[in-house]
Write a protein that binds this DNA or RNA. Sequence first.
DNA 1: AAGTGGTCTAGACCACGCA
DNA 2: GCGTGGTCTAGACCACTTG
Lengths: 263, 263
Amino acid sequence: MDGMSAMRSGRAPMYQQISEALRQQIADGTLPAGAQLPTEADLTERYGVGRGTVRQALGDLVNAGLVVPQRPRGYFVRERRPMVFRPQAEFRKRPFSAEMDAFVLEHSADGREPRQLIEVAIVEPAPDIAKRLQLEPGQLAAVRRRIRWLDGEPFNLNDSYFPLDIVRESEIMRPEDITRGANEVLAELGYRQVTALDEVYVRMPTPDEVHRLELGPGTPVGYHVCTGYTAEGKPVRVAVTVLPGDRHVISYERRWEPQDGAE
Amino acid sequence: MDGMSAMRSGRAPMYQQISEALRQQIADGTLPAGAQLPTEADLTERYGVGRGTVRQALGDLVNAGLVVPQRPRGYFVRERRPMVFRPQAEFRKRPFSAEMDAFVLEHSADGREPRQLIEVAIVEPAPDIAKRLQLEPGQLAAVRRRIRWLDGEPFNLNDSYFPLDIVRESEIMRPEDITRGANEVLAELGYRQVTALDEVYVRMPTPDEVHRLELGPGTPVGYHVCTGYTAEGKPVRVAVTVLPGDRHVISYERRWEPQDGAE
DNA sequence: AAGTGGTCTAGACCACGCA
DNA sequence: GCGTGGTCTAGACCACTTG
């Protein structure tokens, strides 16, 4: 018996034809967000293929983040409602334009219930962190690890690292919320940050992140690293935030600076 | 015959145990970037499981972006060397701190050969673009579509939209490189941008993006939308950039503004 | 109890690049 | 021609949730 009877029509593999057809229906609204897809059995019969082939097709959509399997109910079209993540919020309270205001408002946490868990530790930071803090190998850092929830769902991870020698015995070492902000505490300690370098990486999550953030399959994350510097150029804080792609928009605004000479 | 003989040891499915073991070896450097993994046949024998199970394990790693299958050579640990994508570059030539300079330099295109292909069209923009440009339904926009390569590899997609009525018959409509920048042309037309709103979304690519950017499986993209406004608050440009996660770091810098009152 | 997706097996043929 | 991964089949048992 041939293994590939149903595939010989076009040239694309059968499973791709199936996933493409479903993709189409999701794109054009035939299958709106939250709708249930046909079951594996349905598709197996409809296309006259083996179950493995159908599962491969559905797997494609799952890995593309379009569809979520909810055992044992079936496959459903994914819904997403990203929140605004605004790195600048910490140093500029209000957006400087009406458009920005409207944008933030549209994606706001209106009435959703925030919660967070803070944990403080002294660690030898990972090499990439140590490098940004300009620590020698073996030098220690304090880290405030936070998990933030919204309506009981994990929302993002935020780890802030500080050189241990400047925050030791300060308020930063206590695992409680600092209402006036950790940055203000740093400033009181004599290390006011005046500039920051932001980096955003886009990648798939680690299994640990999948677990802690309860990520569905096919959900990439933004990995945001912010390094804060004093006026003297000393790095005093590295904040690492892991942002699930299906729950965030990273957003910031810019203002053109006076042109100095030719562009 | 049982279907699951080999799985009954722990509680995690066999394929996860296999992928976890490989993940470990990648993480600790036993399998460095570029190294070849054991073949499917190797793993099938080593773990005493069916080929399907092994393929599921490897599929995990592929979808996590850690491994790339190179038929018919085998599976290899992925290499990545992200380039800096600096949205601010267009309006601030040089980073304002030495740290930033160093960072950009470290991820620079040193000696790699850039190339781009420009295409201009008049379109009815997608709803999200139309909304940002504040266009009425049916109003048209000009779009400059660019694909950029580096050393013959596609690097990113960049589509810039302009309200048609303000750029018609300007230089922007010609599919050639504009050395002094499209922003400068806009300014000459009387629409100088003074602020911009940046949004970054993180998601899996569409099949079209996979094709145009030659993305490997398990490669998420950053979707960067920049809306530029004139002093009067009129949006005059929307630039959409699709950035493969394995080839980019998005980066920008900030400067703390004078504190106004409490916070 | 029924029906869903999750895991696993065994075996088959194909397309492709390299020796 | 050989070995690689890519596709596909047919059949099995499991875990889970819902009626």
